[in-house]
Computed example of a mutant assay.
Amino acid sequence: MTAITDLHVKAADGGDVDLSTYAGHVLLIVNTASKCGFTPQYQGLEALHRRYGDRGLAVLAFPCNQFGGQEPGDAAAIANFCSLTYDVTFPVFAKIDVNGTHADPLFARLKQDAPGLLGTKAIKWNFTKFLIDCAGKVVRRYGPTTKPEDVAADIEALL
Rank of each mutant, 00 (worst) to 15 (best):
K10H: 11
K10Q: 14
A11G: 12
D13L: 13
G15D: 08
G15K: 13
D16R: 15
V17P: 03
L19G: 04
T21F: 08
Y22R: 10
L27P: 02
L28G: 05
I29G: 05
N31V: 06
S34D: 09
C36L: 05
G37L: 11
T39W: 07
Y42N: 04
G44T: 08
E46P: 07
R50N: 14
G53E: 10
D54T: 14
R55G: 05
G56W: 02
G56C: 07
L60M: 11
C64P: 06
N65R: 04
N65H: 00
Q66H: 12
Q66F: 08
G68F: 06
G69C: 12
G69T: 02
E71K: 02
E71Q: 09
N80A: 13
S83A: 15
T85Q: 15
T85N: 13
V88F: 03
T89R: 05
T89L: 10
P91V: 07
V92E: 03
A94E: 15
A94F: 14
D97K: 10
G100P: 06
H102M: 10
D104H: 15
P105Q: 14
R109G: 00
R109P: 00
K111T: 05
Q112I: 00
G116F: 06
L118Y: 07
G119N: 06
T120N: 14
K121P: 02
A122T: 14
I123D: 02
W125Y: 04
F127Y: 06
K129Q: 02
I132E: 02
I132K: 03
C134W: 01
K137I: 10
V139I: 12
V139M: 11
V139E: 02
R140S: 09
T145H: 12
T145V: 10
E149H: 08
